[in-house]
């Protein structure tokens, strides 16, 4: 039994069928990737798992640690141990980095917040009292968001396009953090269309037009994605199957 199970999950938005009859098993302590081209429904699927606004009118069921969480709200799912990192993290006028990280942290001690920032390669002395606003670059906000996730210490982390808007060095640092999280038993799901990110995964789900068309070990999915999906001229349009 997986830590996360999706059974026949489908989602229709504004009359358009965005994801179809998804069945997934996500294994505890492993790194997974939901991979596919733009418009395949990857982020929609992750948003559905997190229970974000506009993504809760689904069919089927979502189970987390054996419990049906289909009808739970975002914060209730989060308190069960699921969290989500946005492709482009939100900006908050006036909200300090330390308060943002501390808000969801299991431990409110400043040293704990300090350590979370250090782990993502940000000097706490420089960042704790800065605001999570437009004065931070996109890469810095990604790191601050990851630090807030580390401090939360969830069981399952979904990261939407983790390589978007960040440089190679930062991405490598992020992968290092992911490996550390995996080593302590945290389950990770990347949402990505990047081969570099896919290569970090143990397991992968390949999506196209709102369906999972292939799943299994990442090393099996990588050549398929690389050789068939990347060159494929087919455009993902919701409601139109392959």
């Amino acid at each position: 039994m997986g830590i996360l199970e999706l059974r026949n999950v489908g989602l229709t938005i504004d009359g358009k069928r965005i994801i179809h009859d998804i069945n997934m098993d996500v294994w505890e302590g492993h790194v997974h990737a939901i991979v596919g081209p733009n418009g395949a429904g990857k982020s929609t699927l992750a948003s559905t798992i997190m229970g974000l606004e506009g993504y809760r009118n689904l069919e089927g069921n979502i189970f987390f640690k054996g419990e049906d969480i289909t009808n739970l709200k975002i914060d209730e799912r989060a308190r069960k141990g699921i969290t989500f990192g946005w492709q482009e993290p939100a900006r908050y006028e006036g909200l300090l980095v330390k308060d943002f990280i501390s808000a969801g942290s299991k431990n409110k001690n400043e040293k704990y917040i300090f350590d979370a920032l250090s782990q993502v390669g940000l000097d706490p002395e420089d960042y704790l009292n800065r605001a999570v606003d437009k004065t931070l670059s996109g890469g810095e906000r990604k790191k601050v968001e990851l630090a807030s996730i580390i401090a939360m210490d969830p069981s399952l982390i979904m990261l939407d396009e983790p390589d978007s808007g960040i440089d190679v060095e930062t991405l490598e640092k992020m992968f290092e953090v992911i490996r550390q999280l995996k080593n302590k038993g945290t389950t990770i799901i990347f949402i990505t269309h990047s081969l570099a990110v896919l290569r970090q995964a143990d397991h992968a789900f390949l999506m196209c037009c709102g369906e999972i068309i292939e799943k299994g070990l990442a090393k099996k999915i990588i050549p398929y994605f690389e050789n068939k999906c990347i060159p494929c001229p087919h455009k993902n349009v919701p409601d139109k199957k392959v």
């Binding site: 997190m50 975002i74 914060d75 989060a78 989500f84 908050y92 808000a103 969801g104």
Partner: peptide, 24 residues
């Protein structure tokens, strides 16, 4: 997005709103 980010860290909607307003 601000609200849902904080809620995805486990804050209730009321607590998340309060934190956002405090920051502003």
């Amino acid at each position: 997005k601000q609200l849902q980010t904080l809620m995805s860290r486990g804050l209730s909607e009321d607590d998340a709103v309060e934190l956002i307003i405090q920051g502003l």
